[in-house]
Write a protein that binds this DNA or RNA. Structure first.
Lengths: 121, 121
DNA sequence: ACGATATACCTCGCCTGTCAAGGTATATCA
DNA sequence: TGATATACCTTGACAGGCGAGGTATATCGT
């Protein structure tokens, strides 16, 4: 894994919601999906994942239920709620705004006044 | 301010380096530049800023010197080092990669196998 | 003369999200 | 029988951000 966690920090919940938006899923599978979607460049650690689940459930953005597997280990499935949908849309919008700002800031492309003395306010 | 800190977390140092790449500057001014560049949507808190300075200096990415103001409060100027330039370039590249991954993950656009069962590895 | 505001620096201690390390249990395959 | 994959979970530490507080100088209005 090569992407530092600080760059992803804050996106964990959005990523989970994005996946659950498509269909109910469970921890192990979500984790694998993320890993393979990023070609192994990023993975959520299990501890991170499960604390995120708890946060999301407490916030009312997801709910969980046990799957009825007849074989293999039990699975706890998660489903996104209506509030979760709203939260997801909002997070996505926030990310788009933040993306613009971050790009501007890290590339050092600043409005002229900010560099010339900043008398704008 | 509306952008949550977790979305910016990890970019603080890159943002500072980006500014110092253009010219030496000092804390207060850097802070103002960021605020005005984002139209007030984001600002580094002073505590964050100064701890970042210390980290960057300890890492050898910046060095500092006192300005010789004849009036007004003293200013501690920061200059980027060669190692700082390298670190900046690397951070920027990392950010571009992370940006792609984050976009993919938060929009839920996943390769097919990841959704179908993930037998790719 | 005095207070408010802007400039400019700094520190302490808390909060929050991440994660290493550890644990449990079931099924498959060599 | 042991290794590996699946599948879940918790504890404690760590690091970065930040609220709250502090210091000092200069300017401007009253």
């Amino acid at each position: 894994m090569s992407i530092t966690s600080d760059l992803i920090r804050g996106h964990t919940e959005t990523i989970i919601l994005a996946l659950l938006q498509q269909e109910d899923s469970y921890g192990y599978r979500i984790n694998k999906a993320i890993r393979s979607a990023t070609d192994g460049e990023y993975e959520l650690k299990e501890a991170t994942l499960y604390t995120a689940f708890r946060r999301l459930e407490e916030a009312g953005y997801i709910r969980s239920y046990w799957g009825n597997e007849e074989s293999g280990a039990r699975r706890r499935y998660y489903a996104i709620t209506d509030a979760g949908h709203d939260a997801y849309r909002q997070s996505l919008a926030e990310w788009h705004r933040a993306n613009l700002l971050i790009n501007r800031l890290v590339t050092g492309i600043y409005p002229r006044e900010a560099q010339e003395g900043g008398e704008s306010i």
